[in-house]
Amino acid sequence: MARYRGPKAKISRKFGEPIEGQSKALQKKNYPPGQHGRGRRKKQSEYAIQLAEKQKAKYIYGVLERQFAKMFNIASRKQGITGENLLQLLEARLDNTVYRMGISPTRRGARQLVSHKHILVNGELVNIPSYSLKPGDIVSVRERSKSLEAISSSLAGQPSNRYSWIEWDNTSLSGKFVSIPVREDIPENIKEQLIVELYSK
């Protein structure tokens, strides 16, 4: 399964946000990585700003280039606002939903849980992180995986039902993907219009 395997702290420092989770490096070095990180940088072009926004979205959701381009293509053919459609497709991914439900503290960890066959969708085993959920789908932890320390420690102290489009039952370790989220409910700091402008060139 293709995924980014490089240094996480560098990505966070590049965008000035804890994209791959909280990092001490981001607090100690609040400037971009590289030998010119502290130096004055020339004004970025419009293309550079748009490209950086696309890269940020890719890193946040853990999607590589071809997959991201394919999702944008699907989003552009759907009715509605293309940028919002793109974020909704990313939010409906199984690995992202597992993360949103609190089963894993990171999307990277959620992707591993899915690919290692710890997650069920509507009672069926699904090990494809990019699997797209539909409203009404039930996501649950496999019975023999419920005792996993990684899952129990992630769920401990997590507020239930943090997101309006997801329902979670801590007793049965299962949740429901209630609906496709609207843009206002998606907390990620992404300027999706810049991504649309980039692909429209």
Rank of each mutant, 00 (worst) to 15 (best):
H36N: 12
P129I: 08
P181M: 07
G157E: 13
K134F: 04
Q112N: 07
L90G: 08
S174R: 04
A150N: 13
L155F: 06
E65Y: 09
E192V: 14
E53N: 09
G37C: 08
R108C: 01
R41S: 13
K146S: 03
Q22F: 14
N170F: 13
Y59V: 10
I60P: 03
I186D: 02
P135V: 06
S130G: 08
T106D: 02
E20L: 14
D137C: 01
P129N: 08
V126E: 05
K8D: 09
H116N: 04
Y99E: 04
K58P: 08
E143V: 05
R77D: 04
R162L: 14
V139D: 00
L155E: 06
V139C: 03
A75I: 04
R66N: 15
L120H: 13
K78C: 12
R111L: 00
I128E: 03
G16L: 09
Q35H: 13
K78N: 13
W168N: 06
L64I: 11
I49R: 11
F15Y: 12
A92I: 05
L64C: 13
A156L: 08
K8R: 11
G37M: 06
Q79W: 11
G37R: 06
R13A: 01
Y99I: 06
I128F: 09
Q88E: 03
R100W: 01
G83Y: 04
G83A: 02
R142H: 07
V178N: 14
T106S: 08
K28V: 07
E124P: 13
R66P: 14
G102I: 00
A69D: 15
G21I: 03
N161E: 10
G39V: 13
S23M: 11
R111T: 00
L155Q: 07
L90D: 02
W165D: 00
Q50I: 01
Y199H: 10
Y163D: 11
N96Y: 05
S76Y: 06
D95A: 00
V139W: 00
S12V: 04
T82G: 04
E84G: 04
I60D: 01
H116T: 05
M101D: 03
I166H: 01
L155M: 15
I138V: 15
V182R: 13
R108D: 07
I119H: 00
I11E: 02
S132P: 10
I19M: 02
R100D: 02
Q67K: 14
Q67A: 14
I81N: 10
A110E: 00
W165V: 01
P181Y: 05
G39W: 14
V126D: 02
V178E: 11
S160N: 15
M101K: 03
Y99T: 08
L26Y: 06
L125R: 07
R93L: 02
I11L: 10
G21A: 04
L94Y: 03
N122F: 00
E46F: 09
G37V: 00
R100Y: 01
F15C: 04
L26R: 04
I74P: 03
I74E: 10
K28M: 09
P18R: 04
Y47F: 09
G109A: 14
D95Q: 02
P159W: 06
M1G: 10
S152D: 13
G123S: 03
S147D: 14
T82E: 12
S76H: 08
S76T: 03
L51T: 12
I186M: 11
P187W: 03
K29M: 15
T97R: 00
S153A: 11
P32M: 05
V126R: 07
E53G: 08
K29S: 15
I195W: 13
Y47C: 05
E17G: 07
K58R: 14
A48T: 10
G62W: 01
